[in-house]
Simulated assay, not measured.
Amino acid sequence: MNAPVQSNQKAQLLQNTVEHVDITSFDARPIIDSMRKMSFSSRDTARAADIFNMALEDKDCSPWLILAGSTSAGGCMHVYRDMVKFGMVDAVVATGASIVDMDFFEALGFKHYQAAGEVDDNVLRDNYIDRIYDTYIDEEELQACDHTILEIANRLEPRGYSSREFIWEMGKWLS
């Protein structure tokens, strides 16, 4: 593998960080309510909000948050954090990509970046930049994240670990 190219081009491609939305900073109910009068996904979004509210009100219901790998990188990380913090979900089920390559990655101080339009994959590869849909991630930082995971694994007693146990160890390492 060739050494990464440090260039102004890489800096330009990674200049706009993804900002995570803070759902506690505004009241989204009026816009969700207006979506009921729209169509396609807008109406579906309003219906989903209604269903989620019914689940929150039903004491016999146990809402779970199921995450796809790339949604954290898209700016939803604080939404998920706050859903747990405020008791809106009882369990989180996430892919390894969401836990390691998104959440842990950012906990290490690294960022995800907004893609800058159409860029040839060869240009991205030459600059050690990975694409996640319309989001970029610095491959060198991703490798540093992977090396940190290796460091955590190497500190553990050799045996089988559940994903819950290993995630616990990742959290201990961060603290």
Rank of each mutant, 00 (worst) to 15 (best):
M54P: 00
M170E: 08
L124N: 03
T95G: 11
R155D: 14
P4F: 04
K59E: 15
C61W: 01
G117D: 07
S62R: 14
R29M: 14
V79C: 09
I51Y: 02
P4A: 03
H20W: 01
I129D: 03
A91G: 13
M77I: 15
D90C: 04
I137F: 00
Y128W: 13
P63C: 11
V93G: 08
D138M: 00
V84L: 04
F52V: 09
E141P: 06
A46I: 02
H147G: 07
N154Y: 03
Y161I: 02
G117E: 08
V21T: 12
D121W: 02
N16V: 13
G87Q: 07
L124H: 02
H20I: 06
G117S: 07
Q143S: 12
R81N: 15
D120L: 05
M170L: 15
D44E: 14
G74Y: 04
Y161A: 04
Q9T: 14
I23A: 08
Y136I: 01
A55C: 13
I99S: 02
M54L: 14
N2W: 09
Y161Q: 04
K37A: 12
D33C: 01
A94Q: 04
V92D: 01
C61K: 10
K111R: 14
S162V: 02
I32Y: 06
G96K: 02
L65N: 01
S70A: 14
Q12C: 02
F40C: 00
D138H: 06
R47T: 12
K37R: 08
S163Q: 03
N16Y: 08
G74M: 05
K85R: 15
W168A: 15
V100N: 01
L14Y: 01
D82S: 09
R47L: 13
Q9I: 13
A73I: 00
M1H: 12
A28V: 14
L14G: 04
E139K: 10
I31W: 12
A107W: 03
A55G: 06
I32S: 04
A107M: 12
A115S: 10
V79K: 03
A144T: 07
M77K: 15
D44W: 07
A3W: 07
L174T: 04
M35E: 01
I152D: 00
E141L: 02
I137R: 10
R125C: 06
P63Y: 07
Y133L: 13
D50H: 04
K85H: 11
N53Q: 14
G171Q: 12
G109S: 08
N127M: 02
